[in-house]
Design a protein around this nucleic acid. Structure first.
Length: 893
DNA sequence: GTAGGGTTAG
């Protein structure tokens, strides 16, 4: 391995960029473990045992059948009862119900009258995980920005008087004039009957976003009310209104006043504020308030518990937290109702826990709680966002059969799921189906649809949707514009971007944080540094506040242009401003090291950084670092030349930093790191990198390392259990995992290992409909996975020929045109497969009708297979095997 | 007290 050059320490000043790196290379690291860090729990010369630390034995599968009474037909294709974290349930399956499709009557002592969960159900959360849910790449960080405001509240069985309605009409006409409002309230004072009328007023004002008037109305009413309980009702009512409108601070103030004045200490007021916290995603505050409530001697009711579980879902809490609340609720003698389950399902959907969602759904039916449209839509969201579209369609069919008719929410959920998987045709046919069923597209559906077109660069189609949307009576909003700006920007249509942005302002649609972060990143990636600077200045001028996504997007753009040092400065700055980087931020940086290494360390960049840093000492903190970085970029003609390849030290440093900050690496980190491995200058360097990473996560990196080293026998059992864990996550996480692993193995010549991995992926249906006798579909695979798969498929074809069977008339291999490829036919995958097929002398040729497809007549393939050289070409071998054993039997397909 | 949409990493 030799010694590491000390220059990285000063090229990249890790001490100063406190968030990024730790390596201060003033000494030569020892040989075995890079001394980038000292793991607290392992001696530098100690090696890890291959049984990964996290799991000493692979999980054994039980033969327990899924619960059969109320499962949606077919959606439970997982034949093992497992917890969200993959533990096989030790419980026996629930008893079969003789009356199929009808919930059994709850039996005393088992379910309804019990105070604990039915032991027949899989425990829904487990204490120890094999592979934490954090590993999933689809877990979003959007909880910080996704709010749940403005959903109108319906009247229900309101007991308000006619006068209250009159008062409402008059009040609305006085909007903005406090004195007039006061006059109206005084005029109506004698006609309004107590809290029923005032609650009606508060609710309706809330539905019209008149929160300020609602507060005024509340104060008016509460001051004229002597009865504590009535005052309490008014308080809960206005807290709920404010919470629904996202005015959580005001809600809190009302609550505190109410408590101080002696009428707020009720379970209703507490529940209302918990719900207000929920809608703002403030799960921790909600739980804290719940504890305070219990301490003050108040007993929570079902609504309180439900609101608290809802807070978990909206606040992005782990399922475990929600499940603990649920258990607490059961042990306090409350029976969950439909809303409890709907809220729990929402937690699963947010956390990407599809199997848990299914278990809950079945549990709910078992308890005799009939699912409603919310239940189904939430369940659909869990399925769709995890990429389980086949299940989603089955759920839709099921709900229709139960006469719970899909609505616009149902459709937009499923359409989005299809679009995410790139199934455009399916998404569009759902839109037709929706129209055929007379379900009108609403604002969300339209924005959804145009975003699909815009993201694919199909601008005519996107603009047509905009037209239709406007004809239906919906004006373009900020979501519409952001989608269009993003779409045009990603295609480099800067003229169009500028035009749209101007039109947006002319139409008085105020740009928001997302608009600016989209524009800045578009311009940065296009090298339009001047425009990026202008946008940033405008963003500041508007008084908008940057958040973690805003910074992450800029950091990623800088990384993509090779300015890792500049991005490190911003990483530092955001932390100082109290904005914590997240896994996405760090993944961007790791990715920068995994890409073409030439840009990462350049003399130019080094000088640029030195200037930036020196400059920094002279300016005070109020100077904006983003502007400084952007202006530096704009003013210079960059010439990136010198390359450095010791990025792996930095990768380790970044990884360690994530560990310190308790930012859990996920599948994208894994993929970025394996990419970086493939860019290491040698096999030894790559294996060292992985070996170091085993100290942090032996389950994942232990398997990657072991397979790279060719320690097949020792590692394979752990690999298989890891594959099972990964498959349990959403489909894109699974495919990303397999793609990254096989690419790295292929790169280092562990081709047979790569093939074994890819076949395990196929067995677990990671890539849907990959393989038939006549067709191999590679379009979701990385080039390593695809090449390994081509070998396997051709071997299979070979065995068909040698067994004396006839091949189909035409065989084809689909590569697609590349998911992100802008130029048709130019994608890397297609080229890699073309080269592979060519090198083997295969008869496959690019189809004239579809350049993403290679075809060959069956007889020609058969003839090629009969050539004595062909089978040998198809069998893959590893460059390395430890211990040095001959290759195992050829893979049996 | 419950459902769907726009931003970041591969």
């Amino acid at each position: 391995m030799g010694s590491f050059p000390t220059r990285w320490g000063f090229l990249f000043d890790f001490e100063k960029t406190s968030c990024l790196c730790v390596y201060n290379a003033t000494h030569t690291p020892p040989h075995r473990h890079l001394s980038v860090f000292s793991p607290p729990y392992l001696h530098p010369h100690q090696t890890l045992p291959y049984p990964p630390m996290a799991s000493s034995t692979p999980p054994t599968l039980t033969t327990a059948k899924p619960y059969q009474n109320h499962n949606i037909q077919g959606i439970q294709n997982h034949h093992h009862r497992r917890t969200p974290n993959g533990h096989t349930s030790l419980h026996p399956p629930p008893p079969r119900n003789p009356t199929a499709n009808k919930p059994p009557a709850p039996t005393p002592g088992t379910v309804a009258a019990g105070t604990h969960r039915n032991p027949n159900f899989a425990p829904l959360s487990s204490s120890k995980s094999e592979l934490a849910a954090d590993f999933s790449g689809r877990r979003s960080t959007r909880f910080v920005s996704k709010m749940h405001f403005g959903r109108p509240k319906s009247g229900g069985s309101s007991r308000h008087s006619v006068s209250a309605e009159d008062a409402l009409q008059q009040l609305i006409r006085c909007s903005g004039d406090d004195r007039l409002i006061e006059t109206v309230l005084i005029n109506f004072q004698s006609k309004l009957c107590g809290s029923d009328d005032y609650n009606f007023l508060l609710r309706e004002l809330g539905n019209r976003n008149e929160w300020s008037m609602a507060i005024q109305c509340f104060e008016f009413a509460v001051n004229r009310e002597r009865r504590r309980t009535e005052q309490g009702k008014l308080a809960s009512s206005v807290i709920s209104v404010l919470g629904r409108l996202g005015k959580v601070e005001l809600a809190k103030k009302v609550f505190e006043t109410a408590v101080n004045e002696g009428y707020g200490n009720t379970v209703y007021a507490y529940s209302a504020l918990i719900s207000a916290y929920a809608k703002s995603g403030l799960c921790d505050d909600a739980i804290k308030l719940f504890e305070t409530m219990k301490l003050s001697g108040l007993k929570p009711n079902l609504v309180t518990y439900n609101a608290l579980i809802d807070a978990c879902g909206k606040g992005g809490a782990d399922f475990k937290r929600a499940s603990d609340i649920f258990d607490d609720m059961l042990s306090n003698g409350f029976q969950p109702d439909r809303i409890t389950y709907n809220s729990l399902l929402a937690v699963c959907s947010g956390g990407g826990l599809w199997e848990t969602a299914m278990n809950l759904f079945n549990e709910m039916c078992y308890r005799g709680i009939e699912p409603d449209i919310y239940t189904y839509n939430t369940l659909l969201d869990a399925a769709s966002s995890g990429g389980h579209m086949d299940s989603a369609f089955q759920i839709m069919a099921e709900m229709t059969a139960k006469n719970i008719m899909p609505n616009e929410v149902t459709y937009s959920t499923v359409i989005r799921g299809c679009a995410k998987l790139g199934r455009l045709d399916q998404a569009l046919s759902l839109v037709s189906e929706m129209k055929y069923a007379n379900i009108r597209l609403d604002r969300v559906s339209y924005n959804n649809l145009l975003a699909i077109y815009a993201s694919l660069g199909l601008f005519d189609e996107a603009l047509n949707v905009v037209k239709e949307m406007e004809n239906t009576g919906f004006r373009k909003d900020v979501v519409t514009y952001n989608a269009l700006l993003d779409g045009f920007g990603k295609q480099g249509r800067y003229d169009k971007v500028k035009e749209l942005f101007n039109r947006m302002k002319n139409e008085r649609v105020p740009p928001n944080l997302l608009t600016y972060s989209t524009l800045i990143s578009v311009y940065l990636k296009g090298g339009l540094y001047q425009e990026a600077t202008e946008m940033y200045k405008e963003f500041k001028h508007e008084g908008l506040k940057a958040d973690v996504v805003f910074y992450s997007e800029i950091i990623d753009s800088l990384c993509k242009k090779g300015f890792v040092e500049s991005s490190a400065l911003l990483l530092d700055e955001m932390t100082k401003k109290g904005i914590q980087p997240n896994v996405v931020t760090y993944n961007s940086i790791i990715n920068a090291f995994g890409q073409s290494g030439e840009k990462v360390f350049s003399n130019d960049n080094k000088r640029e950084i030195a200037r930036l840093e020196n400059g920094d000492k002279k300016v005070n903190d109020s100077e904006d670092r983003i502007i400084k970085v952007f202006e530096q970029l704009a003013s210079r003609n960059l010439n990136i030349g010198e390359k450095g390849r010791k990025e792996m030290i930095c990768v380790l440093g970044v990884f360690k930093k994530m560990h310190e900050l308790e930012i859990k690496p996920n599948v994208v980190t894994f993929s970025a790191i394996l990419n970086a491995c493939s860019r290491c200058s040698s096999f030894e360097e790559a294996s060292l990198l992985l070996e170091e990473l085993r100290l942090f996560d032996n389950q994942v990196y232990g398997v990657a390392h072991g397979l790279l080293m060719g320690h097949r026998e020792n590692v394979w059992v752990h690999a298989l259990s890891l594959f099972d864990e990964v498959k349990r996550m959403d489909s894109s996480t699974a495919s990303a995992f397999y793609n990254a692993l096989t690419d790295m193995l292929w790169h280092f010549g562990q081709k047979r290992g790569a093939q074994m991995v890819v076949l395990e992926g196929k067995r677990r249906q990671v890539w849907e409909n990959t393989w038939s006798d006549s067709c191999l579909d590679l379009h979701l695979m990385s080039s390593g996975a695809a090449r390994a798969m081509v070998h396997a498929w051709l071997l299979n074809t070979c065995s068909i020929v040698y067994e004396g069977h006839e091949l189909p008339g035409l065989l084809s291999i689909l590569t697609g045109w590349g998911k992100h490829s802008k130029v048709v036919g130019e994608c890397a995958l297609k080229r890699a497969i073309e080269a592979l097929l060519g090198s083997m002398g295969s008869p496959f040729r690019v189809a004239t009708s579809n350049i993403g497809r290679f075809i060959s007549p069956g007889p020609m393939v058969a003839a090629w297979m009969r050539d004595s050289n062909t089978p040998k070409l198809l069998v893959l071998e590893d460059d390395r095997a430890y211990p040095q054993t001959p290759n195992l039997q050829p893979i049996i397909l």
